[in-house]
């Protein structure tokens, strides 16, 4: 490894260790409900939800609540994927996710496995991603935090009849640990220019603009960037994106195909998979 890589590794570890203590203190105070503004903000939520935050539960009630909550999560996420075709925020007009894939994804995201057995951008509507997948990213993580807390309380209290309140733990983990952290990370991503909007996809438009006044993507000669992007764009018609309205891309593809040694992308596939 280079010196820069070692420095990066050391800086990362130092930052991680330096953040562990203050973050742990924050999590402890927030999950314990010791912060005054947290108490004030939570009070109306408990009233709305009909939860007595001081009323602790035994392990059976706690477990049952956790299982019930996540079972409802599976149902909601499955239903959302199956119904996305008739729901709003679906500018690409995606149909329902296939029942087996929808069930797989629902179970996977509720259990924090987050296995993406689907092509995100060509399968899930914005609504499904925001109201289903992203919500479960929070709730499954909150479930993990709640389980750890219940376990710690069970150990720490030796012989106690209760291990906390599952609804209080889930709400506090989500509101005061996961949401603030994700807000900070979202700002970092936005600061780096990550695109996030509710508009229809603008596939190929950026590329068309880049090639309008240039023969190649980088510099004045073909580079690995051209080869790489060509390999993806060659599949655009199969993915439902016609290349008709993009003359600069069409001309660029012809230039690549005229390069010495060019072979079609399918020639890279194993013999049995070739069309």
């Amino acid at each position: 490894m280079s010196a820069a890589a070692w420095v990066q590794l050391a800086a990362f570890l130092a930052l991680l260790l330096a953040l562990a203590w203050p973050l742990a203190r924050w999590i402890d105070a927030a999950m314990d409900g010791r912060l005054a503004f947290v108490q004030r903000l939570e009070a109306p939520l408990w009233r709305l939800a009909g939860v007595q935050p001081g009323a602790e539960q035994g392990w059976r009630a706690y477990t049952l609540g956790l299982l019930l909550f996540n079972a409802l999560g599976v149902l909601a996420l499955y239903a959302l994927q199956r119904a996305q075709g008739v729901l709003p925020l679906n500018p690409q007009a995606f149909g329902a996710v296939a029942h087996d894939s929808a069930f797989n994804t629902a179970v996977s995201f509720v259990t924090n496995t987050n296995w993406q057995g689907y092509g995100g951008e060509s399968t899930m509507s914005y609504l499904t991603q925001m109201l289903g997948l992203a919500v479960q990213n929070f709730l499954s993580a909150a479930t993990g935090i709640a389980v750890v807390l219940a376990l710690v309380r069970g150990f720490a209290r030796h012989s106690a009849a209760s291990i906390g309140n599952v609804w209080v733990d889930l709400v506090r983990a989500t509101l005061w640990v996961l949401l603030p952290l994700s807000f900070v990370f979202a700002l970092a991503l936005a600061g780096q220019g990550v695109v996030q909007n509710l508009a229809p996809y603008t596939a190929l438009k950026t590329l068309e603009g880049a090639l309008a006044n240039a023969d190649w993507l980088v510099g004045r000669a073909p580079t690995i960037a051209d080869i790489d992007v060509y390999g993806a764009v060659a599949y655009a018609p199969q993915a439902g994106f016609g290349l008709d309205g993009y003359p600069a891309i069409a001309a660029w593809m012809k230039r690549i195909e005229a390069l010495p040694g060019f072979g079609p992308v399918t020639s890279l596939l194993p013999q049995a998979s070739r069309p």
């Binding site: 503004f37 004030r40 903000l41 009070a43 109306p44 009233r47 709003p88 925020l89 500018p91 609504l127 509710l198």
Partner: peptide, 30 residues
């Protein structure tokens, strides 16, 4: 449909925000 949905979601979020701010400012009423 998207605009209606977003407007409804926005109103709901605004109502929750007002509710929480009110709870923060006048906790004795909650």
């Amino acid at each position: 449909m998207d605009a209606v949905f977003l407007a409804a979601a926005g109103l709901l979020a605004a109502a929750l925000f007002v509710y929480l701010v009110a709870a923060l400012l006048r906790p004795e009423d909650f």
